[in-house]
């Protein structure tokens, strides 16, 4: 993929995040910790992203327990893919606990490499297809916050996060 198309894919992704009420920032590897500190409410729990050179700030608790996950105001995790057409992020179900950390707190902060943003759903599924088949892979395509209209009007935070912020890491 050429640099131009990456840039336009990122633009599309950011636009679509906004459509679904998700805020985002773009930063270099060095800026990730600062960004997380700036946006994450406390107490925060997190799972270290498997992105080289990126780690979580001290303020984010990495000692997970069910009570800590449940009590956290913010959960910080990685996202392994972004889907530009829908402003979706793909969250892997890992032994490290990305799924509960991204789900129980009112705020979810996701860290995503810009290089992992694909243009559309077809590209996302072809990227993941073999992992599903070969590695029993599981994950969530998450778009916007948790939402319901069952109580007479649209409300966010039905069971999961009320707000989502994506930190896009430019390499």
């Amino acid at each position: 993929m050429s640099k131009t198309s990456t840039a336009s894919t990122t633009d599309r992704f950011v636009d679509r995040l906004e459509d679904f009420g998700v805020s985002s920032t773009i930063t270099g590897i060095d800026g990730v910790e600062t960004e997380i500190e700036a946006v994450a409410a406390t107490p925060a729990v997190g799972v270290d992203p498997s992105i080289e050179g990126v780690s979580l700030p001290e303020s984010v608790d990495r000692e997970l327990s069910p009570a800590a996950v449940d009590a956290a105001a913010t959960g910080v995790t990685e996202a392994v893919l972004g889907v530009a057409d829908y402003g979706s992020i793909v969250l892997p179900s890992t032994q490290s606990g990305v799924e509960p950390v991204s789900l129980f707190a009112d705020q979810h902060v996701a860290v995503l490499r810009e290089a992992d943003i694909v243009p559309d759903m077809g590209a996302a599924l072809s990227t993941l297809g073999d992992q599903f088949r070969d590695d029993d892979w599981s994950g969530i395509i998450a778009t916007g916050p948790s939402a319901t209209a069952d109580m007479g009007a649209l409300v966010t935070g039905a069971h999961g996060p009320k707000t989502v912020h994506v930190i896009i890491v430019r390499s």
């Binding site: 327990s65 069910p66 009570a67 996950v69 606990g97 599981s138 969530i140 395509i141 778009t143």
Partner: peptide, 27 residues
């Protein structure tokens, strides 16, 4: 355009078990 979550699960999933009673994460 899309619902908030499309879970793509190949279970049993790899997430740790959560025992809220004992406050322990399991395998």
């Amino acid at each position: 355009d899309i619902t908030s979550y499309v879970s793509l699960l190949t279970p049993p999933v790899d997430s740790p078990t959560l025992d809220f009673e004992t406050d322990e994460l399991g395998s």
